[in-house]
């Protein structure tokens, strides 16, 4: 898999896949998609990048350790669930608000952050698995 073509296009392919994964994540509440699928797509992107160009560039690109990303995701999900506690509602009750960005109304909800947390957990954990195995490959 160490071909020149693959190595050349892998970074672009991976970037596109990550972008697509974010799109899938954000539209998940209304159309097919969501945190799990988005996370898997992004993880695949990093796995491909790693196979093509080695693990070190991926780790540098990610900046954080993949498990740290995963932990952040879990924390984010838990915290977004905790918001409702302050409103005297049971843990994980969805809270909704609408904000206006540049004149466009945008739905903002704790549920969205919960899904983003799921995304990070899946990205982090599975990238970590894939990179750990690839690292052994190159070691």
């Amino acid at each position: 898999m160490d071909t020149l073509i693959f190595r050349t296009i892998a970074p672009y392919l991976a970037s596109l896949m990550v972008l697509f994964s974010v799109f899938v994540l954000l539209r998940g509440h209304n159309e097919p998609g969501g945190g799990f699928i988005g996370g898997l797509i992004a993880a695949s992107a990093f796995a491909i990048y790693g196979i093509a160009c080695g693990v070190a560039p991926v780790r540098r690109a990610l900046y954080f350790h993949p498990m740290a990303i995963s932990g952040f995701g879990l924390l984010l999900s838990a915290l977004s669930g905790a918001v409702s506690l302050f409103m005297d509602m049971p843990f994980l009750t969805g809270q909704w608000t609408e904000i206006s960005v540049l004149g466009l109304p945008i739905d903002l909800s704790t549920v969205l952050f919960f899904d983003i947390g799921v995304y990070f957990v899946v990205v982090g954990s599975i990238t970590s698995i894939a990179l750990a195995l690839e690292e052994r490959e190159h070691a």
């Binding site: 969501g34 799990f36 599975i126």
Partner: peptide, 10 residues
């Protein structure tokens, strides 16, 4: 099943 797929993969 959606969550089950991800967990069984892990």
């Amino acid at each position: 099943i959606l969550t089950a797929i991800v967990i069984s993969f892990s």
